[in-house]
């Protein structure tokens, strides 16, 4: 395509092509610290194409496609081009990645051990991971945790953190402005602003760790904590995985080992500071 960039995020390489310059320029700026592989071999291609013959110029509208596409994906405004590129990369991972069991979860690491947090959109897993990433933990990813089928390690996928609505102000207060992307107002998911992970998260993005704690956070409730039984954990993680079925027995073995080995808790919390205190306490108990 006319404008393109090839990016490496964790183990995956993406070639993103666009009919417009702007989304590529924004990616180049926000992903400046990541490996760029001009002309390199990519695992996935993402294409941002005009949604119709005239839509490159007239009310520019982006249709996201690539190696794996969703025919019914709604077109997006060019002013949300950065979000379109991010969604395109997520879509390729969700539909096409086979080297790890992909869990829709955030993850952070400390002392070689990994905390994995999974939950519905709005559960707070992404914001918590971003906050912990600013407070002494290594951010491994806010969207996908990659479970190695052979070793049981979790590997990072530290793309830009996608902050939504209230989380934008929370993180803006503790992150330097040069690590924050532009405000994308009134997207289908509300206001979105991207956060560039700290340098260590990017420099060590090929470094995995053994999972030590699994949490199911739930934002907006009185503080509470309960143990979650292994069968429920297994059910929830199969629902949170985009490729469990596709991986067959390798996925079954990797996931059942994870569930048997790693303690799991559900935590309800009214604010990020409450959640972080609960997480740090749980982590100390497990240390």
């Amino acid at each position: 395509m006319r404008h393109q960039i090839t990016l490496k995020i964790g183990p995956a390489t993406f070639r993103i092509g666009s009919a417009w310059r702007d989304p590529i320029d924004r990616l180049a700026s926000l992903y400046a610290a990541y490996p760029m592989l001009p002309g390199g071999i990519a695992d996935f291609s993402v294409r941002l194409e005009p949604a119709g013959p005239l839509r490159q110029w007239l009310r520019p509208s982006i249709f996201i496609t690539g190696d794996h596409g969703l025919a019914e994906a709604a077109p997006m405004s060019l002013r949300h081009g950065l979000l379109a590129a991010e969604m395109g990369m997520n879509l390729q991972m969700a539909l096409g990645w086979r080297r790890h069991l992909l869990i829709h979860a955030s993850s952070v690491e400390k002392d070689g051990r990994v905390l994995v947090m999974t939950g519905e959109s709005g559960s707070g897993k992404s914001t918590l991971a971003a906050q912990l990433g600013e407070r002494g933990w290594r951010l491994m990813g806010d969207e996908f945790a990659l479970l190695d089928l052979a070793t049981g390690q979790i590997f990072p996928f530290p793309r830009l953190v996608s902050l939504k609505n209230g989380a934008i102000d929370v993180l803006s207060a503790e992150v330097p402005p040069d690590r924050m992307g532009p405000l994308l107002a009134n997207t289908a998911k509300g206001d979105i602003r991207h956060l560039v992970p700290r340098g260590g998260a990017i420099d060590r993005m090929e470094e995995g760790g053994q999972p030590a704690l699994l949490l199911f956070p739930r934002f907006g409730h009185a503080a509470d904590r309960r143990d979650v039984g292994q069968a429920e954990v297994f059910m929830r993680l199969t629902q949170a995985s985009t490729n469990y079925v596709a991986l067959g027995e390798a996925g079954f073995l990797a996931l059942s080992r994870l569930v048997q080995r790693v303690p799991a808790h559900a935590i309800d919390f009214p604010s990020g500071d409450d959640a972080i205190a609960m997480i740090e306490a749980l982590w100390e108990e497990r240390a």
């Binding site: 292994q230 079925v245 027995e249």
Partner: peptide, 22 residues
């Protein structure tokens, strides 16, 4: 069939169909 015990539950992975039964 590959089996795995989780608490009081047993997972049965049926290799022929690729389905997991709890």
């Amino acid at each position: 069939i590959a089996a795995c015990a989780l608490d009081d539950f047993t997972l049965l992975y049926h290799r022929t169909s690729g389905q997991t039964h709890m």
